[in-house]
Design a protein around this nucleic acid. Structure first.
Length: 967
RNA sequence: GCGGAGGUUGCCAAGCCAGGUCAAAGGCGCAGGGCUCAGGUCCCUGUCUCGUAGGGGUUCGCGAGUUCGAAUCUCGCCCUCCGCACCA
């Protein structure tokens, strides 16, 4: 272990000292610009974060070995509230926050005193950011990432703010950014919008939109809120909770009657509300109001199930289609006592007729009643069953239902299609409004207050529905690579629903909106085109350009080539030479050839990045390709920093080794699936690396030699040369098509298995073995380098090769050495050993000492090849006819039938080597090997003229399938 | 609800898009053997099931269908996971 840590340190130091990954434009070399989203340095990164960066590094290294000038930069994202939030908590002495930071600090600091001292500094957000940005960069170096660190920055830097200012000014110029209002979760006590990290309970809560329907009542409206406005056509009565508190209030100039709680909420939802009178629900029970669609009088009935804390506390009743309403009405029919006190007679209630307004083709006539009875709902108190019935009814009616004739303009339409139209129709006649509620309860702010929905006026948002923008973005998407390709559809659907997106908040770190500086551009909106900033960030910092020099015209020139260089130089005070240099550097690196991250970013960050690129840059500078891999989680369920059940990224090199972790992460699963990091699997990975090392230690220093036909090498050598070159081909193919896992398996598992097998072959002469193995080591160390760069650098230098393996040429497969027939013949040896073992097992007690192997005659190979070439359909008769038409085969009569029967049974041809000679040579060459494997003496015969065949087995042999006789 | 992904042999995980060579890669676990004073690491072999000759049977969420042939294609059903916006 310690040896590998030493090796890793050694090479990391050399890479850094010789600045090998610090890259500048090189017109002689083709560039490759790869980015992975910058991390958020509000604490130590954990083991899960490493996957994406590791895969990114694998790509960077592979491209580099393919001759590209590769730029792989990194920075820090500090926009938003999380860091400020943590800092506040530390400042307030919150023990949980302090302990969390201390845990992170212990990863990097040796003594408890240092930890204590450092955590005290964390009352300053910048101290926190500086520390963890450094820590993360050290973590990344310790994992061997080939990053150009000169270009680092944070999103809170003045120079970055200037860049974002420019970006948003561009949006403003294009009218992509606008002001409006938007509902969001809000804490009335704190007076702030709340996000996930502000919540004590209900962190998954979202805004749910109800339709408020205004039913005329006295001098105003009873405002009922519903999720199914289309059911207003089935209304029979109104429900009011007689014991709850209601108000009569002036809302935007109209008289509304809603629950007292609802009135408070309406105020938050940007309505002008003046409460005129507060009263108990019983006061209006027994009165009547009017329906919207046919202006009928309907009674207001008492209902205990009405929850005044939900929505408006006024519920309209649709017993035909809502189980709650049906059951409540049924309860009154069964037991009308108590109604008199509201002046309602039993007859009046019994006279209410259920109105059916949704028809389900081929379904129950009265689904609600049916469901209520099927589930055995006893009364309106039976909430669980009512909820289930409601869900079921809603689902069925929504999808299969058709509006009946009594639904005015919507008659005959599908329920699933009319909802929005009904809302419009209601609004048009001033009978509709919106009312927001969280979609779950409780939602509690960290201050202990119940969270409400507020509609804040003056919210800035990016309007992704601005004319033409989506078309541009779709154009970009269509011309862009998405790997794995199956994620493309997620982009498409995101583009479809993307509409207005708030892009600024009132608090947090970040860039103020240039035209409304009270607002800070939020974290997902200031991280969309910053890949461009990497191309010049180091020039800005090294030349100590001041933020105020980075005015709009500066970026216009550098990124867009706009303006006259002299004018820009005059205005900014940046020399023309430097401006030109930066412009050229930008033009050299841009566009971003590949952006690699996780699929969870598709619906936000990645889509925004695509949109924003199309808004700012010409087509040639749009992102070329997006690649994705799923998350890594640590065993034992979800990782959570607060639970402390995670391994910090910084501990990994010490605990497991960088190369081990890299191999694990690349090989555990393909990019599309999530991986679980299991401690118990680590030894297996380490073992594979050890085997790789051991083999290289043995042979890397020998002199490589390729044994060609002339030297008449053994079959095993020919096979290995072919196999290894095939593997090189596969590795290239796998990495080109973004299949890192297959690459990892080929370069580690398959190579090791092949090498081990070869080394087990006793017939290979020592000299031949060493020369061949040395040749293989030279290739192996290079194809393994992107995944395990440290180990490979070490061997590369031991092999006395020039320079770093990180910059060595990726090997090209030597096609001359690839011989599929030899590889197939090898399979025969392999399966023969397997078959002998199986038969041996079946012999039970009986001991066999000799095994006779019969290779099929040449004509059977000819026959198989003939069928293959003729490309016949798989019909016995056809194949038979084809073979029998050839006199060479006809003379074997019955044996031909055997082959054909076999083909029929196997449903086709199978792979085998070209000729009987190949197969026999492979077996004869492998005699000693087979003998040592099965512990029997081996005799290879040609079945055409077998001199020894006591059991008449020879005739059963087929190409690729020898026949055996054990005695 | 909308949108997406997925259910493979004890576990993890390939295969599915381009149907046959798939009882289905690889890893873990387990079993036997080797190595070792012993244990671990390590190496080899095996690991659905039946079988005294390399073969047969039954499997890839469930049920139908297409096809000479389906883990792979179509339809229906059941189940799991993820995103749904102001949150980095």
């Amino acid at each position: 272990m310690s040896e590998s840590v030493e090796i890793e340190k050694k090479w990391q130091t050399r890479w850094e000292k010789e600045r090998v990954f610090e890259v500048d434009p090189d017109p002689k070399k083709e560039k490759f610009f790869l980015t992975v989203p910058y991390p958020y340095p509000n604490g130590a990164l954990h083991i899960g974060h490493g996957r994406t960066y590791t895969v990114g590094d694998l790509i960077a290294r592979y491209k580099r070995m393919n001759g590209y000038n590769v730029l792989y930069p990194m920075a820090s994202h500090i926009t938003g509230t999380p860091i400020l939030g943590m800092v506040d908590r530390v400042r307030n002495g919150d023990p949980v926050a302090i302990e969390q930071y201390k845990r992170d600090l212990r990863v990097y600091l040796d003594t408890e005193e240092e930890v204590e001292a450092k955590v005290k500094e964390f009352t300053d957000p910048w101290a926190t950011v500086r520390f963890f940005a450094e820590a993360i960069s050290a973590d990344f170096k310790a994992l061997g990432y080939s990053i150009d660190w000169r270009r680092k920055f944070t999103t809170g830097d003045d120079i970055y703010n200037q860049f974002i200012t420019w970006q948003y000014q561009k949006f403003m110029d294009k009218s992509y950014i606008r002001k409006g209002s938007h509902p969001l979760l809000y804490c009335p006590n704190c007076g702030n919008p709340v996000g996930e990290d502000d919540l004590l309970e209900g962190i998954t809560a979202k805004v749910k939109e109800f339709t408020g329907i205004k039913y005329p009542f006295e001098d105003g409206f009873l405002v009922a809120a519903t999720l199914r406005p289309e059911t207003t056509f089935g209304i029979t009565n109104m429900w009011i909770n007689p014991t709850a508190e209601y108000v009569r209030s002036k809302v935007n100039g109209e008289i509304w009657i809603v629950s007292s709680a609802a009135a408070t909420k309406l105020k938050l939802q940007a309505k002008e509300v003046e409460v005129l009178e507060t009263f108990s629900g019983s006061k209006i029970v027994g009165k009547s109001c009017k329906t919207v669609h046919d202006n009928r009088d309907i009674p207001i009935l008492p209902a205990d199930f009405v929850d005044v804390d939900n929505a408006t506390g006024v519920v309209y009743s649709v017993p035909g289609h809502a189980p709650y309403d049906y059951v409540a009405l049924r309860d009154l029919w069964d037991d009308p006592t108590g109604l008199e006190e509201y002046g309602i007679s039993a007859d009046e209630v019994r006279g209410i007729e259920v109105v059916m307004m949704i028809h389900i083709e081929g379904g129950s006539k009265f689904l609600t009643k049916h469901m209520v009875e099927r589930l055995g709902v006893d009364s309106q108190k039976d909430e669980a069953k009512l909820e289930e019935a409601t869900q079921e009814v809603y689902k069925t009616e929504f999808y299969d239902g058709v509006m009946m004739d009594n639904c005015g303009p919507f008659s005959g339409k599908r329920v699933s299609e009319v909802k929005d139209d009904v809302i419009k129709w209601l609004k048009n006649q001033n009978r509709g409004d919106v009312f927001y509620e969280p979609d779950e309860r409780p939602v509690v702010c960290k201050c202990g207050t119940d969270v409400q929905i507020a509609v804040l006026a003056g919210q800035w948002f990016l309007d992704y529905e601005s004319p033409g923008w989506k078309d541009l973005a779709r154009d970009a998407l269509n011309s862009m690579g998405i790997v794995p390709e199956n994620f493309r559809i997620m982009f498409e659907s995101t583009f479809d629903w993307l509409a207005q997106r708030p892009c600024a908040r009132k608090r947090g770190i970040g860039t103020p909106l240039p035209f409304d500086p009270e607002w800070i551009i939020e974290a997902l909106s200031d991280s969309t085109i910053y890949m461009a900033f990497y191309t010049i960030a180091h020039k800005i910092t090294h030349n100590k350009l001041k933020p105020e020099q980075l005015m709009l015209s500066f970026f216009d020139y550098v990124f867009l080539g706009q303006g006259k260089i002299e004018n820009v130089a005059d205005a900014t005070g940046v020399s023309s030479d430097l401006l030109k240099e930066m412009r050229e550097e930008f033009l050299y690196w841009y566009p971003n050839d590949q952006r690699h991250t996780s699929p969870s970013h598709i619906s936000n960050h990645l889509s925004f990045a695509i949109f924003h690129h199309t808004a700012i840059f010409p087509k040639k500078h749009w992102i070329r390709c997006i690649s994705l891999n799923e998350h890594l989680v640590q065993e034992g369920g979800k990782m959570s920093k607060s639970k402390g059940n995670v391994t910090p990224l910084g501990e990994i090199p010490k605990k497991y080794g960088a190369d081990v972790y890299r191999t694990y992460v690349v090989s555990a699963a393909e990019p599309g699936s999530q991986i679980e990091f299991r401690e118990s699997d680590v030894p297996a990975v380490r073992n594979r690396l050890n085997q790789f090392s051991n083999i290289l230690k043995r042979f890397a220093s020998k002199t490589p030699k390729v044994y060609t036909k002339k030297e008449n090498p053994t079959f095993a050598t020919k096979w290995l040369l072919s196999k290894v070159n095939s593997i090189v081909d596969s590795c290239t193919h796998y990495l080109d098509s973004f299949k890192p896992r297959d690459y990892a398996l080929a370069v580690m598992s398959e190579m090791i298995r092949s090498a081990n097998h070869y080394l087990k072959r006793p017939e290979v002469p020592k000299e031949e073995r060493e020369g061949t193995m040395a040749y293989i080591c030279d290739i192996w160390v290079r194809i393994a380098a992107p995944m395990i760069p440290h180990l490979c650098e070490e061997f590369w230098s031991k092999m006395k090769r020039n320079g770093f393996v990180s910059f060595a040429d990726w090997p090209a497969a030597d096609k001359k050495l690839i011989d599929k027939s030899t590889e197939l013949a090898f399979h025969v040896v392999d399966s023969t050993v397997r078959d002998i073992r199986e038969i041996k097992k079946l012999l039970r007690g009986k001991k066999a000492e000799k095994v006779h192997i019969y290779v099929a005659p040449q004509w059977t190979f000819d026959a198989m090849n003939g069928i293959r070439e003729a490309d016949l359909p798989l019909v016995v008769g056809e194949i038979m006819k084809h073979l029998m038409s050839n006199p060479d085969f006809r003379k074997h009569g019955k044996a031909v039938k055997n082959i054909v029967d076999r083909i029929a049974k196997e449903n086709g041809l199978w792979d085998h080597s070209k000729s009987a000679k190949d197969e026999a040579t492979a077996l004869r060459d492998s005699t000693r090997y087979v003998e040592s494997e099965v512990g029997m003496k081996v005799y290879v015969h040609d079945s055409a003229n077998a001199d020894y065949d006591p059991d008449n087995k020879a005739r059963l042999a087929l190409p690729g399938r020898v026949s055996l006789y054990l005695e």
